[in-house]
Every structure is written in structure tokens, then in C-alpha cells.
Write a protein that binds this DNA or RNA. Structure first.
Length: 441
RNA sequence: GGAGAGAUGGCCGAGUGGUCGAAGGCGCACGCCUGGAAAGUGUGUAGGCGGGGAACCGUCUCAAGGGUUCGAAUCCCUUUCUCUCCGCCA
């Protein structure tokens, strides 16, 4: 949610900033008109309320003094104000709702340094705050080379007999997968490893949140009102609950409608949860394999910070996500998303793209975003600063990383010519010491 | 699912129709006391919105929404959530 006062003060900046964004339904002048209408109504209503309150107080005093005649006269004077106040309040509510509804569908303003562009082709590779391509490459796992033609993950998985899309279809339809045996264990190992890493080495608090959430939480993290069709809902009494599309929803909403003390910040939370996405509108994309599923596991990182700290926290969170791929030995690159490719609530987003030799391309495995106070305004999440002033917090979220896609990356990068998959060192402890799975042995 | 109790400021908690945005406490801030601290002590301390350069003024908010009333934290209705007991249950 953007601040209408900021828009009023910077209408040109607003219109320019959102030019690179898709689907911006309102211009600054339309929003300002809505706000002016709202203020006009407020003036009228409050004047009537002030008059009514003062007369009512006088009635109380007159009655206390047993001056019935005066009380009666005042009663007649105040009578007509009742209607004025009531219709005024209704008009006020309408004007406020209109403005809020308009603001709720506006995307966040990208930070100045975000590259302007139309789609993923305009994303820009990122090498760290002061980084160069050469320096970044040094710190990252190298691209593997193969003496044979590397296979895609589903070829390997199906050949092993441990990845089954047909059984999954029988149970649940398209875009589901069944993992079995050692591959199921490997998926679990990857999730455990990543969660442990963020808790033990990166300063996050482990959280096991609910997987079903209410509409209010979804509104706070921008899934509602605009992206309802991406979600799965289950009926619940007269109402409904949504299956979380990401743990960002429960974790970020921890601080909804609260005023934190500055000492509690930064708050860093992480969780390993299933995620559920209807993938409406992505028919035909990534239909082979388990790259794009209705259900997948993900380790999510969320940080709540003061406004001053959010930019540094963004770099830290990116580094935390990168650490996962470094430790797993997966070659990757980082891109800064351009204005046209960024998500609705983000000020700036880095994507981590893992190298998939079977596909001979980089694929997104993590997305790390700083949202500024955009979500905090929607959630009414604030903190009290050192001077006692109440201000909105900043929120960040990032995948650290998607478990299903990490499994794909491990399977493709660690595949052997005999169809087996070597186990990265850091996962062996989670695999009872196994160094490879799926081999003919 | 049945019965009952409850929801008040950053937190705890008092308050059953007018002088209540709300006692008291905790916490926090500033001061006094102290060699320094603790303890003690004094003062201050809700948020949103509107107006104003500011001081400040107005308005709304006591879970949410509606109603009664000139006037509601307080009375009535609906909803949500929490707790206790019973039932069911991994």
C-alpha cells in the first residue's frame, strides 16, 4: 500500500516510477481527486459532530443542575443534527473505502537503481554491492562439465523408479509428483539442511507456522485482492481459509497490527513449509518434470527491520540464500529484476538462478525482495523508534531456497553417467552417510 | 458439536448511560538522589484522521460491524477471536 500523502507531494515522481510497471490502473491525478473528495466529507462530518458533542455535554450539565427547561430547549436544538451526522458518516466511509480500494491494487514503487525494462530479458546480472563478474565467479561453485550428455531431472528420476508423475496424476491430476525411496529422502534432506543452515549460521528463528490462513493475512502480503486466482481455498464454516502459497504469508503477518519496540528489530524468521499454488494462467509452461507444481516445499526467510536497515538486510538475505547454493556446490547466477519483471509488492528483487545442465540453462531457484513499508502499511505493522515516534517497519522476504527446485538442481548437477546421482557432502549426514543414490548396485 | 466466561492503551488491569481517551500498575523517557549503579523519588508517556507554520484545536477509536439514545467502554443484536468444562478425535 502506497502512502497517499507521498503521492500528493510527488505526483510526477509517482507517475514516472510506475511507468515501468504492468497494470497500473490509476494515475496520480485520479488518486488525488479521491483523496480531496475524502477530505471534503471529513470536514463536513466533523463540524456536525463537534456541534452535537458540545450540545450533548450541555444537556448533561443542565440535567445535573435540574434545569429541565434548558435541557428541553437544547434537545430540540440538537435533534436535526442526528441525521446530518449519520448520513455524513456513511458518505465518509464510502469516500475512504474508495481511496483504500484504489491504493490496494497499486504496485510498489521500484527503487531508483532498479533497471527499467519490460520482461525477464531486461534483468541485469548482479555481482554484489561492489562486485565484479570475476570476483563473484571466484566465490561461487563452477559450472560442471560432463563427459556425456546430461539428462533432465525427470529422466533420471523416472529411470531410477523414484519419481512418478503417473501415480501422482492418478491421485491428484497434473502438476503433482510422487517421490519415493531415496529420492524422497533426498528431498527431505535438502529441506532440513537449508533450514538448519539459516537457523544455526544466519541468525533466523525457526518457525513452524499454520499452512492455512485467513483473508486478512493474504491482504497483508499482497496476495489479495489482486491475485486471488493464484490461490487454493478450502471452505471453513461460512468462510474460507487459503492454503499458503509461500511461508512469507504467515511469517510476515506475525507483526500485523502491532507496534514493536525497536529492540525487537531486526526480526528474522525462517520456516520449511509446503506451498500451494494454482498456477492459473501458466498453462503450457514447464509442463514436464517437477519445476512448476501445485504443491512444493520451500524454505522461506522473512525479516522485519527498521527503515534504515532494510537495504543492508536485503544484501544479507541474498547472501544467506547464496550460501545454500555454495554449500550444495550448485553453480548459479544472480540477477536484479527489472521493473517489468518484479513482483507486485517489491521495491527491488534479486533472483538466484541455478544452473541446470540437463536443460542447458539457468532457472530461478530463489527470489529475494525488499518491500519497504509497502506490506507494513497493509498490515499496519509499526515500531516505536528511539524518540518514541511510531513508524512503519520494513519487510523483506526471500526463498532460501525452493526445495523442489534445489532437488532438481542437485539431480542435474550431480548426475553420473550410470544414471545415479552423487550426494553433495553437506547432505550426506542427512542421508545416513550415503554418497550416491539410484545407481545399479 | 454442547454449556459457560471473557476481549479495555506498548503490556497488565479498574471502570455498568454524561465531567471517561479512560484509575492504578508495569515498561519507557527525562530529572532528583548516588563516587557510579540498584533501590527510592518527581514529571511525562495511546493511535488514526482532519485543520494549522507551530503551539494547538477538532474528530474517531475500549475486539469488529450494526442498533437504542441528545449523549455509549458501559444497554441491545450479529460476527470474530480467546479461555474453562463436556463430547469427539490424530
Amino acid at each position: 500500500m502506497l502512502d497517499i500523502n507521498w503521492i500528493k507531494a510527488n505526483p510526477a515522481a509517482f507517475d514516472t516510477a510506475l511507468k515501468g510497471r504492468k497494470n497500473v490502473p490509476f494515475s496520480s491525478s485520479e488518486l488525488i481527486a479521491l483523496d480531496d473528495a475524502r477530505r471534503a466529507v471529513i470536514g463536513e462530518v466533523e463540524e456536525a459532530q463537534a456541534k452535537r458533542n458540545s450540545l450533548s455535554k450541555q444537556i448533561g450539565q443542565a440535567k445535573a443542575q435540574k434545569d429541565e427547561a434548558k435541557a428541553q430547549a437544547l434537545l430540540e436544538e440538537v435533534a436535526h443534527l442526528k441525521d446530518v451526522v449519520q448520513t455524513g458518516e456513511a458518505k465518509r466511509k464510502e469516500a475512504e473505502d474508495k481511496l483504500r480500494a484504489a491504493l490496494a491494487v497499486l504496485p510498489n514503487i521500484p527503487l531508483d537503481e532498479v533497471p527499467v525494462g519490460a520482461d525477464e530479458h531486461d534483468n541485469v546480472e548482479y555481482f554484489g554491492p561492489n562486485g565484479t563478474a570475476a570476483a563473484a565467479a571466484k566465490g561461487r561453485p563452477a559450472k560442471p562439465s560432463f563427459s556425456f550428455k546430461p539428462k533432465e531431472h525427470f529422466e533420471t528420476g523416472e529411470a531410477m523408479g523414484q519419481m512418478d508423475f503417473e501415480v501422482a496424476a492418478k491421485l491428484s491430476g497434473a502438476r503433482f509428483v510422487v517421490l519415493k525411496s531415496q529420492l524422497a529422502r533426498l528431498e527431505r534432506a535438502i529441506g532440513q539442511f537449508m533450514l538448519d543452515l539459516h537457523v544455526d549460521a544466519h541468525g533466523y528463528t525457526e518457525v513452524n507456522p499454520p499452512y492455512l490462513v485467513r483473508d486478512e493475512a493474504l491482504y497483508g502480503t499482497n496476495q489479495l485482492p489482486k491475485f486471488e486466482e493464484d490461490l487454493f481455498f478450502v471452505p471453513h464454516g461460512e468462510s474460507r481459509l487459503a492454503l499458503i502459497p509461500t511461508a512469507e504469508v504467515p511469517l510476515t503477518n506475525f507483526v500485523r497490527e502491532s507496534i514493536l519496540s525497536e529492540a525487537e528489530l531486526p526480526m528474522r524468521l525462517t520456516a520449511l513449509t509446503p506451498c500451494f499454488r494454482s498456477e492459473a494462467g501458466s498453462a503450457g509452461r514447464d509442463t514436464r518434470g517437477m519445476l512448476r507444481q501445485h504443491q512444493f516445499h520451500k524454505v522461506e526467510m522473512v525479516a522485519i527491520t527498521t527503515p534504515d536497515a532494510s537495504r543492508d538486510e536485503h544484501e544479507k538475505m541474498l547472501a544467506d540464500a547464496e550460501d545454500v547454493l555454495k554449500q550444495l556446490g550448485i553453480h548459479y547466477r544472480v540477477v536484479t529484476l527489472c521493473t517489468g519483471d518484479m513482483g507486485f509488492g517489491a521495491q527491488k528483487t534479486y533472483d538466484l538462478e541455478a544452473w541446470l545442465p540437463g536443460q542447458d540453462t539457468y532457472r530461478e531457484i530463489s527470489s529475494v525482495s525488499v518491500c519497504g513499508d509497502f506490506q507494513a502499511r497493509r498490515m499496519d505493522a509499526r515500531y516505536r523508534d528511539k524518540d518514541g515516534k511510531v513508524r512503519h517497519v520494513h519487510t523483506l522476504n526471500g526463498s532460501g531456497v525452493a526445495v523442489g527446485r534445489a532437488l532438481i538442481a542437485v539431480m542435474e548437477n550431480y548426475q553420473q553417467e550410470d544414471g545415479s546421482v552423487a550426494i553433495p557432502d553437506v547432505l550426506q549426514a542427512y542421508m545416513k552417510g550415503l554418497t550416491s543414490i539410484g545407481g545399479r548396485s
